[in-house]
Computed example of a mutant assay.
Amino acid sequence: MIKIEDLEFTERLSEGGFAIVFKGRFKGTEVAIKKMKLSDGYTEDQELFQKEVFLLKSLRHPNVLSFIGVCISTSGDLKHQFIITEFMENGSLDHYTKKLKGKFLIEQKLDILLDICRGMMYLHYKGILHRDLKPQNVLINRGGTAKIGDFGISRVADVQATMTGHCGTMEFIAPECLQEERYTEKCDVFSFAIMMYELLFECKPYENQDFNLFTIALKVINGLRPVVPFNTEDPKAFEKFTDTILTKHPKTYIASVVVDYISLMKVCWSALDTERPSFEEIFESIKEFRQRIEYQ
């Protein structure tokens, strides 16, 4: 247990529905300090806190955010709870994408996706479903390595039980979760596909469509997916897009990589979870894309 007096809060970084994240220091080391929001009668908040701490303590992988410790302090009748993790200098993938917009190399994007695959393969091997995989929950360190974080609504898969219930962030939720049907680890693959879309096209999945979140949910259940902003069978439109892709290598195979990338993305967001590939299969495909660009 970390004492509150051993923590130094240096900068407020972000705020979400369940927590406020600060940059800070612990015994001379830069850390991220996540302060949990506790509402009146905070049974559910307490459960989220305990669940995230339990999961983080059990995880050790280069592509999963490293847990440092937990701090609980009291002030009068108030209890303050903090989760301390390693500090990721480049922030979330969402922030990183905006920061590099217009200068984000395809090699970097593929490397980040490979990192996410490695982290997700590890989580699924451990029987853990993330259930809220999105750019805001992937963190990037100074060297550009991606690590998966925010396990507040993650769940340990139980092969004896039916996994049901609401999970995730609306634009990234698989249709079976939206319908509160039985779901498996393949719900994370659907979320990954939406992330693939955001990374390749550097835009939000439904930003040009006048839908509220409830409408998006209904339409996703009925087959709505993010719109690819060009027709891959229109040579001029396709060439115009591939010309915008930045790479440090010759563009000899960029067109074929983009076509196969989009095909993989679409398989990953299939309506039937049984048609979606595993993260092992996704990893092998993306690794081949990366090699095709670099070793042509």
Rank of each mutant, 00 (worst) to 15 (best):
E11D: 09
E11M: 05
A19I: 09
I20T: 15
R25W: 03
F26A: 06
S39C: 05
D45F: 01
L48P: 01
F49Y: 11
V53H: 07
K57W: 01
H61C: 07
P62R: 12
F67M: 09
S73V: 04
T74M: 12
D77W: 03
F82Q: 05
I83R: 03
G102N: 07
D111P: 00
G119M: 04
L129Y: 14
D132M: 02
Q136C: 05
K147H: 02
D150F: 04
S154Y: 09
S154G: 08
D158G: 05
V159C: 04
Q160T: 08
G168T: 02
E171V: 04
E171Q: 13
I173S: 04
L178F: 01
E180Q: 14
E181P: 03
R182F: 07
T184G: 03
V189I: 13
L199K: 10
Q209Y: 06
N212Q: 12
F214E: 13
L218S: 11
K219T: 02
V227M: 12
P229V: 08
F230P: 03
T232V: 15
T244F: 10
K248Q: 14
Y253S: 10
V257A: 12
V257R: 09
V259P: 06
Y261N: 11
I262V: 15
E275L: 13
E280P: 02
F283C: 10
F283M: 08
R290G: 01
